[in-house]
Amino acid sequence: MSTPWLIALAVAKVLPKKATPLIFAALGGVISENGGIVNIALEGIMAGGAFAAVVTSYRTHDVVLAIFVAVLTGMALAAVLAYFALAQSADQIVVGMAINILTLGMTAYLVSTVFGQPGASPEVPGLRNEAVLTWVALALVVVVHVILYRTRIGIHLRAVGEEPRAAATAGINVVAYRYAATIAGGALAALGGAYLSVGETHIYSDGMVAGRGFIALAAVIFGKWTPFGAAGACAFFALFSSLQIVLQGGAVPAQFLEMLPYLLTIVAIAGFIGRARPPASDGVPYER
């Protein structure tokens, strides 16, 4: 039962489920941060997406519509971040924190009012096979990579994130790109949330995002702000939590394995394993 082969097989089965929501959210972070907007609201946006999907599915029994509404919700939340960061020149970290607090409160409030019971929704119609979303996530890694590095839009976006004034003088609309990137990032993070709710479990429960947004943020940094790097980091983190599920009861306490992504990220940004350097203007407000 515990031959390496069987372990590998078991891990291979859990890993995509662990990795998929992280990859969506991390890709969202990659896009947003390449455009120069730090998004620490991934956690909140995931929760918002997860919740919106379940409510929609609960009311309409239409899973595709549910995912669509989740994406719209993520875009709306990201638009708030973008508006305060861009139009109000607010500190992006502060706004991200505010959105996390706001969204976690709002979803809990709405669970109570919409479902008449706090804590969790009832079971709702969900995707029959959530692996579809895993393939979507993997495809998006390639798509985002191609867009970022092989298209004009991507070059413009990275230019905006690196040196917005240079981009502006080249005729690129910095503010529009930053809005678009942040909002697209929100859409992806919300997809990650929808994967958790209508994809994997078919319910919404307060606290179900359980820190995945912050792990995704860690993956963005650990993956050096590139789609493949971030997705690889997500897979790496997912590998450890999958091993933890499969091999539980080993010598290492569960908490230590769960800590790993966070510790590795600290190590990564401290520069111990190759410096993690963000886009030059990531988090820096742009004013014309």
């Binding site: 505010a98 959105i99 607090i101 706001l102 969204t103 976690l104 409160g105 709002m106 809990a108 409030y109």
Partner: peptide, 8 residues
């Protein structure tokens, strides 16, 4: 939970 909304 509404107070978290106010807080945010």
């Amino acid at each position: 939970d509404l107070i978290s909304v106010v807080e945010g």
